[in-house]
Amino acid sequence: MDTILVIIVLFVVVGLFGGVGLIFTRETGAKNVTESARYFLSTTRQAGRSLVATRPSTTATTATSSTSDAGSPESAADEGRGPAVTITPARQSTTTTTPSPVSQGPAAARLDDGALRELREELQGELRRASGITREFDARLTRIEANSVDTPQLSTELTRSIEEHAEAQRGELAQLRDELRTVRQTAGPRGERRTEALANLYGHLARVESALAGVVNPMLLPGEPLTLPGELPPETLVWDNWSDVGERAYALGDAFNQHRLVLDPETADEIERFIATLRQGLTGSVDPNVRAQQPTQAQLRQMRAGLETIVAALPGVRRRVELAYRGEGATADDT
Rank of each mutant, 00 (worst) to 15 (best):
D269Y: 05
L282A: 02
A211I: 03
N241R: 15
L198R: 08
L263A: 04
D264S: 14
V215G: 06
E247S: 13
P233L: 03
P218M: 06
L263P: 02
A268M: 10
L252Y: 04
A199W: 05
F256R: 15
L201W: 07
G223I: 06
L261S: 09
E266C: 00
G246D: 07
V238S: 10
G203S: 15
R193K: 09
A213F: 05
R291I: 10
N257F: 03
D254K: 13
N200T: 15
V216N: 02
D264I: 06
G223M: 05
V238A: 12
A276Q: 15
L282W: 04
D244Q: 12
L261V: 12
P229K: 06
D269I: 04
G281M: 07
T267V: 12
G214Q: 12
R194H: 13
A211S: 12
V238C: 02
D264V: 01
A292K: 06
A276I: 12
Q280F: 13
T283K: 03
G281W: 09
P222G: 09
L205E: 10
Q280D: 15
L198I: 11
L252T: 13
T277I: 11
S285F: 03
E209D: 10
W242T: 07
L205C: 14
R207F: 12
G284T: 05
A251M: 15
V290I: 14
V245M: 03
L237V: 05
T236N: 11
L226V: 04
V262F: 02
D264W: 06
P233M: 02
M219A: 08
N200P: 00
R273I: 07
G203V: 08
L205I: 13
L237I: 01
W242P: 03
L226W: 02
Y202W: 10
L220P: 00
F274A: 09
Q280C: 02
A276S: 13
G281E: 04
E235I: 12
E209M: 05
Y250P: 00
P234R: 04
V238G: 06
A268H: 04
A249W: 02
M219C: 00
A211Q: 04
G281D: 07
L261T: 13
H259V: 11
A213V: 04
G203H: 12
T236K: 06
V208H: 06
A255W: 08
L198T: 06
P229Y: 02
H204C: 08
E272S: 14
L201G: 01
N200E: 15
I271Y: 00
V208D: 09
V238Y: 05
V286D: 02
S210R: 09
P222Q: 14
L237S: 05
G214K: 08
T277Q: 11
S243A: 05
T195F: 03
V290Q: 04
D254W: 04
G253H: 09
G253N: 14
L201E: 03
A255T: 14
I275H: 08
Y202S: 15
T195P: 00
P288D: 01
V290F: 08
L221R: 07
L221C: 01
T236E: 14
L228V: 02
Y250G: 07
L205A: 13
P233E: 03
Y250H: 03
A249Q: 03
T227P: 00
T195S: 11
D264K: 03
E270L: 00
F274R: 02
Y250A: 15
G246Q: 06
Q293I: 12
E192Y: 10
R194D: 07
A197R: 02
T236D: 06
E266P: 00
A255S: 15
